[in-house]
Design a protein around this nucleic acid. Structure first.
Length: 471
RNA sequence: GGUCGCGUGGCCGAGUGGUUAGGCAAGGGUCUGCAAAACCCUGUACCCCGGUUCAAUUCCGGGCGCGACCUCCA
């Protein structure tokens, strides 16, 4: 039985979909005003595993992932280029780029990065800026139903009007009142925990739209409520995001959507815990906000990072270290090595019974996506495959390979060792080494091997001669 | 101050009221021209202090440590 830990109920719930065989899923996507980092990638990879495993289980999944491209740069930000060390803002200042152009730049970066991570593209990536009229209609509905109020061109959600507020995060109004921090709430708010639906834009605000209340811009939370209903309907199956989204963002989404639509919002809420780097929170000041390029620049494959994500449970805080990444890389190579042996195994021989491990894999994944345990099952299976193929051929190699491939696909690990083919010059060196070895000229063959290693290829001897693979 | 999560061997990381995953690294071996890869063997851990229990790493309480969120733009 497939179970997910549901933040809403604080327990593992058996998963059932609203429509038999179909799942609607919404993931809070990137804010395209900066480069997405490995913390974002962990959350997106996890959402992808949820989707992939549901697919593995036979569901048809419809995945929506928004693009938050409503920027809040002001003329001054752009003119001075002083928003921290944001290169794009500085570039915008110099090149007179618009916020839209900047957003597209980061959006493209986000897409390209996710593709490298083998994260399946969503069926739709709705942009917030293209759904402003939808948000305005939603705010009008909330006003009409008495869940929101307007003052001086600003519109706020009246938290007191929604009695389930706090169900997701535990931050009920009562508890918020007890633990309230003394800050200056917006002067137009009735209660400090009310949140903005629409804000009147200051004169120098670059992105703003006409609305019945003011020329302004939407609140942070309203976009997801507006876009999810557009693409998935008022009630859908799964909503995911990073743990930082639980409050206030997701709490606010529930309040807005359920108040407006009068029906339950998402059934399942899955949140990925944060990633730490070397035991500390990622931050710009610490210089540990890694992007995928930081990983690949050190010679790692994006799939190594993906494997590292899989090696810890998505609901536990993960600590990124280079050592752990190297371990993940070894594990991935082990799995791919076994897969390769399967591909080369001739027919005949004896059968490897994989029934038990197949069940173990499914059980691990069914249990709230216990990917570390699932990987363990595959590693154990890899050893069985290696042992088996070392002595005899595998009668059911196809069956084993089909399962192994299916399992790795469900986890989002490429089953090909490398997308890029081995270059001809490298193959030529390998051939030369074979010739030298055949002539028992080991001095030359060892030199050629060193050459290959220096060029970033590992060298393995096999019955078919020198085999090279990247890194 | 409020809400919540976590603390497992050199490292990563599952899990469990008693039979003590798995991997990486390490040491030993098989194989190999030498390596690599692969395989085999070795290695008994659960922050501290109380409590419950025949038995706790696992449950309860306290402490210490780490981390997350606490609303207006990420």
């Amino acid at each position: 039985m497939l179970t997910f830990y549901n933040t809403l109920t604080k327990q593992k719930d058996v998963f059932t979909s609203i429509n038999p065989g179909k799942v609607g899923m919404y993931t809070c996507g990137p804010t395209v005003y900066n480069y997405i980092h490995i913390g974002n990638l962990r959350a997106y990879s996890n959402a992808d595993v949820i989707r992939r495993y549901l697919t593995y289980r036979g569901y048809e999944v419809r995945m929506i992932k928004n693009i938050t491209d409503v920027g809040h740069l002001t003329d001054d930000d752009v003119a001075q280029g002083d928003s921290g060390d944001d290169k794009m803002v500085k570039a915008a200042a110099k090149e007179k780029k618009t916020p839209q152009e900047i957003a597209r730049f980061y959006e493209e970066y986000a897409f390209a990065t996710q593709e490298k991570m083998n994260i399946l593209p969503a069926h739709y990536n709705p942009r917030a800026t293209e759904h402003i009229p939808h948000m305005i209609r939603l705010i009008e509905t909330l006003l009409a139903k008495g869940h929101a109020y307007e003052k001086n061109g600003n519109v706020f959600f009246d938290v007191a009007s929604f009695d389930r507020y706090g169900t997701l995060s535990g931050n009920t109004v009562e508890k918020l009142a007890i633990g309230a921090r003394l800050e200056d709430p917006h002067p137009d708010k009735r209660n400090q925990w009310d949140f903005a639906l629409w804000l009147k834009a200051p004169k120098n605000h670059l992105m703003k739209w006409d609305a019945p209340w003011s020329v302004g811009y939407p609140g942070w939370h309203i976009e997801c409520s507006a876009m999810s209903v557009d693409y998935l309907g008022p009630t859908f199956d799964i909503h995911t995001g990073g743990e930082d989204n639980i409050f206030p963002h997701h709490e606010a989404e529930i309040a807005q959507s359920e108040s407006a639509n009068g029906v339950p919002f998402a059934h399942f809420w899955l949140h990925t815990r944060h990633l730490q780097v070397d035991g500390a929170k990622m931050s710009k000041s610490k210089g540990n906000m890694y992007t995928l390029e930081d990983i690949t620049d050190r010679g790692f494959d994006p799939m190594d990072l993906r494997m590292l994500f899989l090696l810890s449970h998505y609901r536990s805080q993960m600590n990124f270290t280079w050592d752990a990444l190297a371990q993940a890389q070894k594990n991935r190579h082990t799995l791919l090595g076994a897969l390769e042996r399967l591909a080369q195994s001739s027919t005949g021989g004896t059968t490897l019974d994989i029934t038990a491990e197949r069940t173990n894999f499914d059980n691990a994944m069914d249990d709230d996506l216990n990917t570390p345990l699932a990987i363990t099952v595959l590693l154990r299976l890899a050893t069985a495959i290696n042992t088996h193929t070392a002595t005899t051929s595998l009668a059911n190699a196809d069956e084993v390979r089909t399962f192994f491939t299916k399992a790795l696909t469900a986890l989002g690990i490429h089953t090909e060792a490398h997308a890029d083919p081995i270059p001809d010059d490298i193959l030529a060196i390998a051939a030369a080494r074979d010739a030298a070895r055949a002539a028992k000229d080991f001095t030359t063959s060892d030199a050629l091997r060193d050459d290959l290693l220096a060029k970033g290829y590992t060298v393995t001897d096999s019955a078919d001669g020198t085999k090279v693979s990247k890194k």
